[in-house]
């Protein structure tokens, strides 16, 4: 605030405060003349209503006095009197900073555990998982669901099974959370006609042992080898480097009906997992990874020798 506006506020505050204080005292000392009957002589309704002269109620006087005192203390302690910062130097930014220091001090023992333990160790740390759950609910549950069971509407994977699109090692999971993932199944409607897409879809669901049209499988397999195997690999077990799902495990990102599979082939799929590095810090990401991996799904991590 410029000096002019600061002075403006100060002047108005002083005028306001002193005038009201003056009126408060002055009005209580005015000698109002009264008639013999103790009224002011003002009458209404032909004399049935007469104006008496009563003292102000005591509670009102006390509350007003306290109001003056509180206002004065406030202006001395807190910002309000123009550019005067108040003797406490309070600002909302400082208060926030103190709150954060306080709250971090309380969590310090846990923060130390998070920093010193590995993600796999944290998966059995109850205290850490509690915070992990809170972070998951706040940030991840909207897509992956509150039980982390995923959502086929969004193609958000179930995180509690042992099926991993981009790999289930701790380093993979950490990378996924930190940087996010961009699904890139291309659309094939320009390259394949409806009957070809139908054949491939039938072949794909047959791999998981679901109901299909046996007559289309061979044709579908041939097209699959030409068009799809590049990413999903020849045996259709997928490629975690590309996030190409395993098509033989009866685990479905978008649903297992032939219609849905045909849709995926024709229009492609571009599931997006946002990256969290700008929103969450390393400790938080570690806790999230630990919470996700606490669902009895550490097979790959343990197989890879992670501890």
């Amino acid at each position: 605030m410029s000096n002019f506006w600061s002075g403006w506020v100060m002047a108005l505050v002083v005028i306001n405060y002193t005038t009201i204080l003056f009126l408060f005292i002055w009005a209580s000392r005015v000698d109002i003349p009264v008639d013999d009957d103790g009224t002011t002589g003002h009458t209404w309704a032909n004399g049935t209503i007469r104006e008496g002269l009563n003292k102000l109620p005591k509670w009102w006087l006390i509350m007003s006095t306290l109001g003056f005192i509180a206002a004065f203390i406030y202006l001395v302690r807190y910002p309000g009197f123009g550019n005067f910062e108040g003797v406490t130097g309070w600002t909302s930014t400082k208060q926030l900073h103190e709150q954060i220091i306080d709250s971090n001090a309380k969590k310090q023992p846990l923060i130390e555990q998070v920093q010193s333990q590995s993600v796999l160790q944290l998966t059995s740390n109850k205290e850490a998982l509690k915070v992990g759950l809170r972070l998951f609910e706040d940030n991840c549950a909207a897509c992956h669901g509150y039980q982390a069971q995923g959502s086929q509407k969004l193609g958000a994977p179930n995180l509690t099974d042992n099926v991993w699109l981009y790999g289930g090692k701790v380093s993979d999971v950490m990378h996924t959370i930190t940087y996010g993932r961009q699904g890139m199944m291309p659309a094939h409607s320009a390259m394949l006609d409806d009957s070809q897409i139908n054949s491939v879809a039938n072949y794909v669901v047959s791999l998981s042992g679901l109901a299909h049209n046996e007559g289309l499988v061979d044709k579908g397999k041939t097209i699959f080898a030409q068009r799809c195997a590049m990413c999903h690999s020849q045996d259709a077990t997928g490629n975690p480097m590309l996030g190409a799902p395993n098509l033989t495990d009866n685990d479905w990102l978008y649903g297992n009906s032939i219609t849905t599979v045909k849709e995926s082939i024709a229009n492609g799929r571009h599931g997006v997992m946002p990256g969290w590095k700008d929103r969450l810090n390393e400790n938080q990401i570690k806790l999230l990874a630990a919470w996700v991996l606490s669902h009895d799904n550490t097979e790959q991590a343990i197989a890879a020798g992670e501890k």
């Binding site: 940030n139 897509c143 969004l154 571009h270 599931g271 997006v272 997992m273 946002p274 700008d278 929103r279």
Partner: peptide, 10 residues
């Protein structure tokens, strides 16, 4: 950026 475009649409 907290959610994907698909999520926002859905």
């Amino acid at each position: 950026g907290k959610y994907s475009d698909d999520w926002q649409r859905q």
